[in-house]
Design a protein around this nucleic acid. Structure first.
Lengths: 189, 189
DNA sequence: CGCGATCATATCGCGCCGATACATCGGGAC
DNA sequence: GTCCCGATGTATCGGCGCGATATGATCGCG
C-alpha cells in the first residue's frame, strides 16, 4: 500500500520524506494515516530495490551542497525507470487488496493514472465487498435481533447505514465511469 | 485489541480458537475481522502470560478424552484469575487506542462490562476524534476544492458524509448514557 | 540571545495480516 | 461402499505498518 502511494507521488515530482508524508495526508487524510515508522523503512526498502533513488546533494557554484540555507540532511528521492514499471504493475492490479478497506482509498487516490477497465474492476470488486458486509449486518440484526447486546446492535446499525451509503456512492462512481467509457463526459483531471 | 476481545469472550464461557473467531465475527463483523494469523499467536501469548489456560482433555467415564467422535485436537481455553484482572484493567482504559478506528469497535462490543464513567469518556473521546477528521475533510474540500483530483474529492465527500453521521450516532449514544446516569432508563442488558 | 515550534530523519519491538499447510469428519454423489 | 468436497480445527512464517522514542537543525519571536 505505502509502496503504491510513495511511487505514485514520486512519479509526479521528486520529494523528501517529510514532504511525502504531508502530501500523503492531503490526499488520504485519515483513510490511511501512514506514520513515520512505516514511511522511512519503506523508503529504504524501495531504494534498496532500486525503485527510487536518492538525488545527490549537487554542489552548486558557490557550493556546499545542501549548505547555505538548505537543511543539513534532506534526502530527496526520485522515481527510477524500474519504479515506473512497478507503479504501472501495481496500478494494474484489481485483486482483493485493491478493494480492501485499507487498499481501496489508496488506489482511488491514484485513480487518474489507473487504466479505465482496471478502475471499473476495482469499483465493482469494492461494491461486491461492501454489499457482502451490508448483507451480513442485515441478517445478524434481523435474525438474532433479540439476544444481541445493545451496544453491539448500535454498532451494527451504524455499520449498516455506512455500508448502504457507500454502495450508493459506488454506484454513482460506476455510472460516471460508464459515461466516460461512452465518451459522453469530459475526463476532467 | 485482540487481547481484549479474547479475554472478553472467554470471561463469558470457555471456548476453542475456531469458536472464538466465529463469536468475534458475530460481534465485530467487519469492524475488526481478525485473522487466524493473529488469533492463534495471541492465544499462545495469553497462555504464556497465564491470562488464559487450556482445559485438560478430561477423560470421561467411557473416556478416551477427546476421543470417540470429538475432534482430534481441540484446545479449549478458559480465563484465569489474572486474566480477569487484566480484562478489568483493559476495560478501564480510555486513552487514544480506546477510540481509534481500530479499538473503538472492540471496546464497544464489550461495553456492557465497562464502567459507566469510562464508557462516557470513550464515547466523548471518539466524538472528538471523529469531529477532527470531519473538520479536516471539510477544510480540504472547501479550501483546495479546485485543484483536487476528482476521485480524491469523491473519497473526501464520502468521508465527510460518514463522519457527520457517526457524530450524530455518537450523540445519540451519549444521550442515552446520560439518561442511564440519571436513572431515567432501564439498563437493558 | 535564548526558547519553543517546526522541520527532518531514523530505529526498535510488536501486533496483525495473508498465505499456506495439514489433518479430521460428515455427507452427498455414484 | 467409497470417494471426494466442504467445513472444522490448529498452526507457522515473512513482512508490513504502528507507536514510542531519540536526535538535531533551523526559524521566528520576544
Amino acid at each position: 500500500m505505502l509502496e503504491l502511494a510513495v511511487l505514485g507521488l514520486l512519479r509526479e515530482t521528486p520529494m523528501h520524506g517529510y514532504e511525502l508524508r504531508k502530501q500523503l495526508h492531503a490526499r488520504l487524510g485519515s483513510f490511511r494515516p501512514f506514520s513515520w515508522g512505516s514511511l522511512y523503512p519503506t523508503l529504504r526498502r524501495l531504494q534498496r530495490a532500486a525503485l527510487i533513488a536518492e538525488q545527490e546533494p549537487v554542489a552548486t557554484t558557490s557550493g556546499t551542497g545542501w549548505g547555505r540555507q538548505g537543511r543539513r540532511s534532506r534526502r530527496v528521492y526520485e522515481i527510477t525507470a524500474e519504479g515506473k514499471d512497478r507503479l504501472d504493475e501495481l496500478l494494474g492490479e484489481s485483486g482483493p487488496q485493491a478493494y480492501d478497506d485499507d487498499g481501496f482509498g489508496v488506489h482511488l487516490a491514484f485513480f487518474s493514472r489507473t487504466p479505465a477497465e482496471v478502475r471499473m474492476r476495482i469499483l465493482e470488486g469494492r461494491r461486491r465487498r461492501v454489499e457482502e458486509r451490508r448483507d451480513g449486518l442485515r441478517s445478524t440484526m434481523t435474525r438474532a435481533g433479540e439476544q444481541i447486546d445493545r451496544y453491539t446492535r448500535e454498532l451494527h446499525r451504524l455499520g449498516l447505514d455506512t455500508t448502504e451509503r457507500e454502495v450508493r456512492w459506488l454506484d454513482e462512481l460506476i455510472d460516471h465511469e460508464r459515461s466516460l467509457g461512452r465518451g459522453t463526459d469530459e475526463p476532467t483531471g
